[in-house]
Amino acid sequence: NRTSFTQEQIEALEKEFERTHYPDVFARERLAAKIDLPEARIQVWFSNRRAKWRR
């Protein structure tokens, strides 16, 4: 089942994506704690966001 992201979560994710397309585990963990999502969801979001960026 899909995770629905809040506007705040999307903004935080997009901001980090501007900084780096490949956040390391520490950056992902920090973001996970900040926006209250599992680190695995963040990893998947970045993977999908990079795919979207390449299109």
Rank of each mutant, 00 (worst) to 15 (best):
E39F: 13
L31T: 02
K52H: 08
K52C: 13
W45N: 00
E16R: 01
L13T: 00
Q43P: 02
E8R: 10
N48E: 15
D36R: 10
R2S: 15
S47I: 06
F26V: 15
D36V: 07
K15R: 13
E11W: 05
R49N: 04
T6S: 12
A51K: 08
L31W: 02
F5L: 13
W53H: 15
A51G: 07
E16Q: 05
I10F: 02
F5E: 08
S47V: 14
T3K: 07
E8C: 09
E18C: 09
K52Y: 05
S47Q: 14
H21G: 04
P38Y: 02
R2Y: 14
V25G: 14
V25I: 08
A27S: 15
H21T: 06
R28C: 14
N1D: 15
E11V: 12
E8W: 05
R50Y: 03
N48V: 11
R19S: 08
I10A: 11
P38F: 02
P23C: 03
R55H: 06
N1S: 04
S4K: 12
D36I: 03
A33F: 05
A27N: 07
I35G: 02
T6W: 01
K52N: 11
H21P: 14
R28A: 07
E8L: 07
E39M: 10
W45R: 01
A33N: 09
S4M: 14
R28I: 14
E18T: 09
R2P: 09
R19I: 09
Q7P: 12
S47Y: 09
D36A: 10
R50A: 04
K34M: 13
K34Q: 15
A32L: 03
D24K: 00
E18V: 08
F26T: 14
L13K: 01
W45E: 01
V44I: 15
D36L: 12
S4F: 07
Q9E: 06
K15T: 14
E8A: 13
R41W: 11
R2L: 13
F17T: 00
R2C: 15
W53C: 11
E11N: 08
R30N: 09
E8N: 03
D24P: 03
N1Y: 14
L37W: 04
I35W: 06
W53Q: 12
R49I: 01
E16S: 07
L31Y: 02
R19K: 15
R28Q: 06
R54K: 11
P23G: 01
Y22E: 08
S47K: 12
Q7I: 09
H21C: 04
E18Y: 03
L13N: 00
R30T: 05
L31F: 02
R19D: 13
T3C: 05
Y22H: 07
A12G: 06
F46Y: 04
R30H: 12
E16K: 01
E18Q: 07
R28S: 05
R28E: 04
A40D: 12
F26D: 15
S47A: 14
V25M: 15
D24W: 01
F5K: 02
Y22V: 05
I42L: 08
R54P: 10
T20Y: 03
F17E: 01
R2V: 04
R28M: 13
L31D: 00
H21K: 09
A32H: 03
T6G: 06
I42Y: 01
H21S: 04
E29I: 04
K15W: 08
A40C: 11
D24N: 06
I10M: 03
H21N: 04
T3Q: 07
Q43T: 09
R50M: 03
W45D: 01
P23M: 05
R19M: 08
V25C: 10
R2H: 06
E16H: 03
R41G: 08
R2N: 15
P38L: 06
A32E: 04
K34W: 03
E11G: 10
K52V: 13
E14T: 02
A51S: 13
D24T: 04
I10E: 06
A51I: 06
N48I: 14
A33V: 09
P38M: 07
R54I: 07
H21A: 11
L13I: 02
W53K: 06
A33E: 10
E39P: 13
P38Q: 06
R30Q: 05
I42F: 02
T20E: 12
Y22Q: 04
H21L: 05
A32T: 03
E14M: 02
R30W: 07
D24M: 02
W53Y: 15
A33L: 11
I42K: 00
H21D: 03
K52D: 11
A12R: 04
Y22S: 06
Q43N: 10
V44D: 14
W45A: 00
Q43L: 10
K34E: 09
R54V: 13
F5D: 03
T6P: 03
I10R: 06
P38E: 13
W45P: 00
Y22L: 04
W53N: 10
W53D: 13
I42T: 01
L37R: 03
T6E: 04
F17I: 01
V44W: 11
I35A: 07
L13H: 01
K15L: 11
I35C: 10
F17P: 01
Q9T: 03
K15M: 09
V44R: 08
I42Q: 01
R55Q: 08
N48C: 10
R28N: 03
N1C: 15
A51F: 05
I10N: 05
R50W: 01
L37C: 10
L37P: 03
R49V: 02
R28T: 11
Q43K: 11
A33H: 07
A32F: 00
R54G: 14
E18K: 05
V44Q: 05
T3L: 11
E8S: 14
F46W: 03
A40Y: 11
N48G: 05
R30I: 11
Q43S: 11
S4H: 11
P38V: 06
F26C: 14
E18F: 08
R55C: 09
P23E: 01
F46Q: 00
R28H: 03
Q9K: 05
Q9Y: 02
H21F: 07
L37S: 05
L31K: 00
H21R: 08
F26Y: 11
R49K: 12
E14Y: 02
A12V: 10
D24Q: 01
S4D: 15
R54L: 12
L13D: 01
A51V: 07
W53V: 14
R30L: 09
N1E: 15
R30F: 05
I10L: 13
R41E: 15
S4C: 09
Y22D: 07
R54T: 08
Q7N: 12
L13V: 01
R55F: 15
L31R: 00
A12K: 11
R49D: 00
F46K: 00
L13F: 03
I42R: 00
T6F: 03
T20S: 12
I42H: 02
R49S: 07
E16L: 10
A40E: 13
A27Q: 14
R19C: 06
E11A: 13
R41Y: 08
Q9V: 03
R30C: 10
F26N: 15
E11Q: 09
E14G: 02
P38G: 07
S4W: 13
E14D: 05
N48F: 09
A32Y: 01
V44E: 13
E18G: 09
E14K: 00
F26K: 15
R49W: 02
L13C: 03
F26R: 14
R50H: 02
D36H: 15
Y22I: 03
P38C: 10
A12D: 07
Q7H: 10
R55L: 07
Q9A: 06
A51T: 05
E8H: 06
S47N: 06
A40F: 08
T6Y: 04
R41T: 12
H21Y: 04
R41K: 11
E29H: 07
Q43R: 13
N1H: 15
N1I: 11
F46I: 02
Q7Y: 10
R55W: 05
L37Q: 12
R30S: 15
R49L: 02
R41I: 15
